[in-house]
């Protein structure tokens, strides 16, 4: 046992560390999808593209200011706002037109995905572009080093999750959102402006995805195809966590993040992804409401 730890301790430590960072990142990306899913009962296939847009805007901000910190701060404000506007626009002129019908929405958001991706390819180009981290340092553990910014991302992500939680619990808009999520008709009868709530939820979902893009882009790069993987991962997290539940989303992100870390380190990454997708499918089949059911935030 002790010799196992001597040999594999560092591996386990890394798996947990990396898994925790992955979990926070995942939770943030998935949160927007979860809200949209929970309140509006629609699947936004373009969610990953909103994330990608956040990363791409971040690069433009970095390129414009030529300074990692100012570029980061600029992107932090502008990217969610811009993407939120795109989301409001899509809601007003597309989703409302198809009456939020689940299947139609899926097809329409696939269309949005194609449009966003190809416009980005036109404007931004095909290459992956690096964005410098606003704060950069390296932490040296006895066995290996680790990026300090990754830990900052985890921290900021936790902060954002907390912010959204407080917003949903304490603000009037949040109350309306929760009411709409619980029962659309009753909320409407009680004078909740459901149409506006839908638009805000969709904008909030898009803005959160963009925010995640801005935070994460320094630990990877911006490219026009980067949206698909986060989309699939968000699906996994949202399903396992249960629709519209912040707590569920976070718990699920940890389950996926840490198990992904451990399986990847000790076995194989492709195997980890395979098992994760299979696991999600089985959770849905056997416990369709997800681990945390339909509970409201």
């Amino acid at each position: 046992m002790i010799s196992w730890f001597n040999e594999n301790g560092p591996l386990l430590f890394l798996a947990l560390l990396d898994g925790t960072v992955t979990a926070f990142v995942l939770a943030l990306i998935a949160l927007g999808l979860s809200l949209v899913f929970g309140v509006m009962r629609i699947v936004n296939i373009a969610h990953g593209e909103f994330f990608m847009l956040g990363a791409v805007f971040s690069w433009f901000a970095f390129d414009l200011t030529n300074d990692p910190l100012w570029g980061f701060l600029l992107a932090l404000v502008v990217a969610p706002a811009l993407v939120g506007s795109i989301a409001i626009f899509s809601d007003r002129f597309i989703l409302r037109k198809v009456k939020y019908h689940p299947e139609s929405t899926i097809v329409a958001t696939i269309g949005v995905l194609y449009v966003i991706q190809s416009v980005t390819l036109m404007v931004f180009g095909p290459e992956a572009r690096a964005v410098e981290a606003p704060l950069y340092f390296r932490i040296q553990f006895p066995w290996f080093g680790y990026s300090g910014y990754k830990l900052i991302v985890a921290g900021m992500s936790a902060f954002c999750l907390l912010g959204v939680w407080v917003f949903m619990k304490r603000s009037k808009l949040g109350l309306y959102m929760r009411a709409t999520q619980q029962d659309f008709e009753i909320a409407k009868t009680y004078g909740v402006p459901t149409q506006k709530i839908y638009a805000s939820v969709f904008a909030l979902g898009g803005g959160l995805a963009a925010l995640a893009g801005v935070l994460i882009v320094p630990i990877r790069q911006a490219d026009h195809l980067m949206g698909l993987e986060p989309l699939l991962l968000s699906f996994i997290v949202v399903i396992i966590g249960g629709l519209g539940s912040i707590r569920g989303t976070i718990v699920a992100a940890f389950i996926i993040g840490i198990s992904d870390g451990i399986i990847s380190v000790f076995y194989e990454p492709t195997l980890a992804k395979m098992l994760a997708t299979l696991f999600v499918a089985m959770v849905l089949v056997l416990k369709p409401s997800g681990l945390y059911g339909e509970e409201v935030v």
Partner: peptide, 9 residues
């Protein structure tokens, strides 16, 4: 892809 996306919408 852009045209396909627009047609789809």
């Amino acid at each position: 892809q852009l045209v396909v996306g627009v047609v789809l919408i």
